[in-house]
Design a protein around this nucleic acid. Sequence first.
DNA 1: TATATTAATCGTATATTTACGATAAACGCT
DNA 2: AGCGTTTATCGTAAATATACGATTAATATA
Lengths: 107, 107
Amino acid sequence: MAQNKSDEFKADEIQLAELAKALSHPARIAIIKELAKRNVCVCGEIVDVLPLAQSTVSQHLKELLKVGLIKGEVDGPKSCYCINTKTLDKYMTLFSRFFGNLESCCK
Amino acid sequence: MAQNKSDEFKADEIQLAELAKALSHPARIAIIKELAKRNVCVCGEIVDVLPLAQSTVSQHLKELLKVGLIKGEVDGPKSCYCINTKTLDKYMTLFSRFFGNLESCCK
DNA sequence: TATATTAATCGTATATTTACGATAAACGCT
DNA sequence: AGCGTTTATCGTAAATATACGATTAATATA
């Protein structure tokens, strides 16, 4: 049981769900907001503002990278992250279209 | 381990994460879209269009109810569901404000 | 009243997520 | 070269999510 049935759904439903999943933890919301505030910052700075261990923060960063919401590059021994505005725009459009369609149907 | 740290985050971050979590499964996206299309429908109709067992669909409906994205009332032996436009509007605002703030910061 | 229909809940198995500490890898600095 | 700093990864434990079949509860109908 608990097998994965997600390939039986439509591509756009899966995509939307994946984005939502990436945003489904307060730590990841907080990370994105922090990146927006500082524009660019390193992992350690994020660890400082979150109530989580370094390894846990690293895991959350990895998930945000996976869906492309953020970009990261190594800068010496540090890792420098920033928001991937291109992907962000794509997802924003996706979301507002989803919500927008609901609106027009139900009112 | 794996304890819940979500009470150590800000209320709006938790709220946003909760909404995202509710939308983080393609079945739940599909349910919402189906409800929007039909405006109102019973559990059985949703089961028919999804590749999932009745009990699983019922579970997904329960989660959407929990965050208030849909409303449900019993109609004889059937259960009648529809989108909760009031909550939907609230969440739409929440989301567009979140995305909007990111936009203004990072460009 | 008995039966069929519909949907929620229960019990359960498995997968995934979340969290941590420990360790390893990469780099700067002395 | 050796040491400290930073961050990713590994191993692991526990919680949560996902899925199903079986059962129960509620109502409609014969």
